[in-house]
């Protein structure tokens, strides 16, 4: 997915890991690499998710024993980190669809910047939603 930046450069999809490590990148190939990584992270998460939800079939005790591990501060933080992948893949996915179907090629760079700003804001908002209860508890309600 080489981007039209004036200079002609081939982006070799087969060598995407090597391309990732190599030095010359513009925002287009970064977006593409991140999109792939976040997509793989999400489908990986979905497998784990179904696996860990499977204790729901065994009733309350089994489920809550399992969930106890995931409500430690460490895992809460990981859930917040996962939201980075969710956000990137969602916002960039919308950008891809706009480029393909809504003449987005004309404004995709601006969209990319706007997505980053929106993403950072949404990330912080989600942090507040996730941790406000804990933070309020720290200060005695």
């Amino acid at each position: 997915m080489p981007e039209d930046t004036g200079k002609i450069r081939k982006f070799d999809q087969k060598e995407w890991i090597k391309e990732n490590i190599s030095y010359h990148k513009d925002s287009g190939s970064w977006a593409w690499i991140y999109h792939r990584i976040s997509g793989l992270a999400l489908i990986g998460y979905l497998f784990l998710h179904v696996y860990s939800l499977s204790t729901l079939t065994a009733g309350r005790e089994a489920f809550e024993t399992k969930m106890k591990a995931f409500t430690t501060p460490f895992f809460m933080a990981l859930e917040w980190v996962l939201f980075i992948f969710v956000l990137f893949h969602s916002l960039n996915g919308i950008r891809i669809v706009l480029v393909d179907w809504a003449d987005g090629a004309r404004y995709h760079k601006m969209l990319y910047k706007v997505s980053w700003i929106a993403g950072i804001i949404l990330f912080l908002v989600m942090g507040y939603i996730m941790f406000s209860h804990e933070i309020l508890k720290l200060f005695g309600k």
Binding site: L56, G59, R60, E64, M67, T71, H133
Partner: peptide
Amino acid sequence: HPDSGHTY
């Protein structure tokens, strides 16, 4: 809410 995603 912390409970909504993690309790039976």
